[in-house]
Design a protein around this nucleic acid. Structure first.
Lengths: 188, 188
DNA sequence: CTATACATGTAACTAGTTACATGATTTA
DNA sequence: TAAATCATGTAACTAGTTACATGTATAG
């Protein structure tokens, strides 16, 4: 699995505590990989056992102590190994698609409402991503290395959200027209 | 979770055995929801206990007997309930994105190869979907109800694959240019 | 005679979610 | 004084994957 590897990448970019990792997975890293703090703490424990990371207790003033994790040579070796290993392309799981297929069997109105909800969600995400793109990557042609890679992942997020948004619009348009036609049929 | 609901939708479209469901999840239904036969058998068992489906043994000639599952009124009620209930939009999980973020830390060449592999995969999927679109939905404007819903879900698949494909092209272009620049730097 | 399709399952393991648990400090 | 942020965890449950297990019929 890849949570270990996502953590290795994140810790290589910058060493940090479980809490900090959880925050990263809520923000930038979470754009393409979700993980809860429970999962992260459990995984970090396993990674220490495997000697992929080391842990250091760090006392802080005015804040609880924290444990800072750092990638070891073994962790870097594992990351290299995994980077070179082919990964299966994502298995798609769209609950919305299941609901659309089920719309004929129930109330299509509630499904339309659900699509509208998803549309808002994707529009909002897209807005956030576009804002980040404008703010942090104003001149994409000049980017190199790590910064380029961060930009390209963001581009993937933008494409995915834009794609979902466009699909929602296509869905709403088609389903509204279908409903209107059904109504016209009953009324005359 | 939605595997139960995906099965309810599929069985409402047409009653069938666990094996037949597994085949559907390999083909059309699998375009937006993956499930192995082990998962399906286990879930069907649970659904019988919950009285969402009934099971009938059917003897066959020249083939092993099969168990045909049918949705009950209780199953239909559950499906209606779920259709009306808001669902969280998909949590994205892109291993490819993790690898891209990790490319700076290892050999970017192997990551480029991986992207090329994913590109082929998405190009192939897109080809299949486009073929189905042409063959089964030649006149989309005339579609209504269930057939329209099937078409719209296929459209979602096409958009998703096209989006991934375009992203792969953007990635390959940017990473190749980055590598060429790096090479130019070293050579003078 | 070999592979594929048909047909149904169990067992063990890995991954992910939800609920619970604790406690300090800072900001409104 | 209430909420948010910082900080780390356990326990129980649900979902998903991999490996194992068995057997018939048909097509090449």
């Amino acid at each position: 699995m890849a949570l270990e590897h996502a953590i290795l990448v994140s810790l290589e970019e910058r060493a940090g505590s479980g809490y900090e990792l959880a925050r990263r997975f809520d923000r930038s890293f979470g754009f393409f990989w979700a993980a809860s703090h429970q999962q992260i703490y459990r995984t970090l424990k396993r990674m220490v056992e495997r000697d992929w990371v080391t842990v250091t207790d760090v006392a802080q003033e005015g804040r609880p102590d924290k444990k800072v994790y750092r990638v070891t040579d073994g962790g870097r070796a594992e990351l290299s190994r995994w980077l070179a290993e082919p990964t299966e392309p994502v298995t798609v799981r769209s609950e919305l698609a299941v609901k659309i297929r089920g719309a004929s069997l129930g109330d299509s109105g509630v499904v339309i409402e659900e699509i509208a909800r998803h549309r808002s969600h994707h529009a909002e995400r897209l807005g956030v991503y576009r804002m980040i793109e404008k703010r942090d990557f104003a001149d994409p042609d000049s980017l190199r290395g790590q910064r380029l890679h961060q930009y390209l992942v963001l581009r993937g997020g933008i494409r995915a959200e834009q794609g979902q948004l466009d699909w929602c619009d296509e869905l709403l348009d088609a389903l509204h027209r279908d409903r209107a036609r059904g109504k016209a049929d009953t009324e005359g």
